[in-house]
């Protein structure tokens, strides 16, 4: 193949390169810089090698927050994905109900993160909040600011409320794109409702569900604002997920080196899980 030499083409690449450099590469490299050195300010750095990484990998505090993070992410995925598909299946397919449902579903997604946290904080307050007060009135001993179980319950409920809509909207889009002929053929083949779901709807939703799971994994794994406003990571460290713990370490204790190392490990975990998951889901797509 003959390539045309045209050095002017570089001018078209430069804007993107500058943009990506400033919003991704340079900040990330700064973190890398901190992760291998010790600093006491005034731009004085001392080489530390892999010390911070070893320290983080062996730290019980990191293990604990990583464990909490995985537990939280698995629980919300386990609730939100089936619930989202279920709601999408029951939504109307045509008529005036469609826009009404879509708008109602989009509402939680439009609310800013810290507003969600503040809303749920007030909503769940055991003395004056509607949820907290009602639960106590019903005889449950509920106090999310003091009891670990209640704190988890409230955080998960808040996340389900905030983000299930995203799964619903994606699943609904996937369902709407299935041609009516598939349902008609299944009817003629005598397929049960369950067979229609497992043999037609789920396989046809595979791509949107992959996206939904990836988005929900990434977002929930990096969750910060809502639990920070709701529980502040407490009681104790019970709801201190990775981001909350990281901010405490970096800005609270000013341990910049270990915090930088933790950021990189955190980043690679997200990258690795997403890559493995995506590769597994898409491995049979090539022959279609």
């Amino acid at each position: 193949m003959n390539k045309t030499i045209n050095q002017k083409a570089w001018f078209f690449v430069i804007p993107v390169f500058v943009l990506v450099a400033f919003n991704a590469i340079i900040p990330l490299m700064t973190v890398v810089n901190y992760a291998f050195q010790e600093t006491f300010g005034n731009n004085v750095f001392m080489w530390e090698g892999t010390r911070w990484f070893k320290q983080i990998m062996l730290s019980e505090r990191f293990h604990a927050s990583l464990g909490r993070q995985f537990l939280f992410t698995f629980i919300i995925l386990f609730i939100q994905i089936p619930l989202g598909i279920g709601i999408a299946l029951t939504m109307p397919k045509e008529g005036i109900g469609v826009p009404i449902c879509l708008v109602l579903m989009s509402m939680p997604l439009l609310i800013p993160w810290n507003v969600v946290g503040a809303m749920w904080n007030i909503f769940a307050l055991p003395d004056i909040g509607f949820l907290g007060h009602s639960l106590n009135a019903l005889g449950f001993d509920y106090n999310f600011t003091q009891q670990i179980g209640d704190a988890w319950f409230t955080t998960i409920l808040m996340d389900v409320w905030h983000w299930t809509s995203l799964v619903v909207l994606l699943s609904y889009a996937g369902l709407q794109s299935i041609q009516p002929a598939y349902y008609q053929a299944a009817e003629i083949d005598g397929a049960s409702r369950w067979a229609v779901f497992t043999k037609i709807e789920l396989p046809k939703m595979k791509k949107v569900l992959t996206i939904a799971i990836l988005l929900r994994f990434m977002d929930s794994f990096m969750i910060y604002t809502e639990p920070f406003v709701l529980t502040g990571g407490g009681p104790g460290n019970a709801t201190a997920f990775l981001s909350i713990d990281l901010v405490k370490m970096a800005l609270g204790q000013f341990d910049l080196g270990p915090a930088a190392a933790m950021s990189l490990i955190y980043f690679f975990i997200v990258l690795l899980v997403c890559w493995v998951f995506y590769t597994l889901m898409m491995r049979n797509e090539g022959n279609q």
């Binding site: 002929a181 598939y182 008609q184 043999k199 037609i200 396989p203 046809k204 279609q288």
Partner: peptide, 9 residues
Amino acid sequence: FQFPVIYDT
């Protein structure tokens, strides 16, 4: 039908 309907999986 007009478009082939098969069960993908």
